[in-house]
Design a protein around this nucleic acid. Structure first.
Lengths: 163, 163
DNA sequence: TATTAATCCATGCGATCCCATTAATACCCG
DNA sequence: CGGGTATTAATGGGATCGCATGGATTAATA
């Protein structure tokens, strides 16, 4: 498998270390792990975005779409690259979260790692629970928008289950 | 055969393991089994949805339509990827259901596997029975609406349940 | 030398693998 | 057609391995 999936919650120890979930580490390695995890504050959430090479390239891709020396590009560069930190994974699969990043996500005693395909996020467990339920109800709606969308078969309704 | 059909009920053992019905395992393999079963809480029922690669690609398909780094995409990703667990099937054809998933479906001592074509659901046997009988009476009604009703057809017991 | 960061080591719990047992079904042979 | 056997699936238990976690030790910096 080559994408980040599922959620895991790990503790932050006295030294500020957290274990990156083993499955995520596996993904990072396949992704051309170059000694570090790219990590930066999520633009629109109290969380941190992180990923490997693929994520880095994606960011590059976004910027390359904009004309050089444009205001927009400068702003975006700063927003995207400015706060990026490269976190190294130690021999035991742990990273240390710098104070700045911890603050942005309100991280304290534990971290919830959330797989999002080609990147993952780190949340304060409590906040994530809240966000998750929001996202969930939103999907209910989105789902209806997609309507008969791709593949009509068993889609319209999940087996008609209702209770 | 390449679709999940019928229902089977298996026990959860002391370690939280359940045997995936052999016919379902066969389908998963034909479906390009990549080492795991994708599983997540059903959106509108106290049950779990699960499937193989085909299901995973369907999820990807939903997201691929949205622009990277949009708020909408992030939210949808959380709901779709964040809730998904990749369950590995051990050498004996069993999976382990994580606590979170078990809770959502109210799973305790046994699991009823319900084939739904290109995915299947896992129910707490009691709840499923209830839902099934409801569904049945609904069909009765629908049939009357259609008027056609070649009466009595396959009424007895929509089979499957082994044991 | 004091302090902080990085590396190494130890441990407990949970997940995974392997093997044994039972039960149900298909198969073969008398 | 009946009896018996071989196979496959489900389940239970024991042993093993890996991961997350905590602490100690060493290296680096001021």
């Amino acid at each position: 498998m080559d994408r980040f999936v599922s959620t895991f919650t790990n503790k932050i120890d006295a030294k500020g270390r957290v274990s990156v979930p083993a499955p995520f580490r596996a993904v990072l390695e396949r992704d051309g792990y170059a000694g570090g995890v790219y990590c930066y504050p999520s633009l629109d959430a109290p969380a941190l975005d992180a990923g490997g090479e693929r994520l880095a390239q994606k960011i590059d891709g976004l910027l390359s779409g904009l004309p050089d020396y444009s205001d927009e590009r400068d702003q975006l560069s700063v927003a995207l690259y400015g706060d990026v930190q490269v976190l190294t994974i130690d021999g035991d699969g742990r990273i240390v979260l710098p104070e700045g990043l911890r603050a942005h996500a309100g991280l304290d005693a534990a971290v919830t790692f959330v797989g999002l395909g080609d990147k993952f996020q780190m949340w304060e467990p409590g906040r994530f629970e809240k966000r998750r339920s929001e996202a969930r109800s939103k999907v209910q709606v989105t789902r209806k928008l997609f309507g008969a969308g791709s593949r009509g078969a068993s889609d319209g309704d999940d087996g008609g289950a209702r209770e």
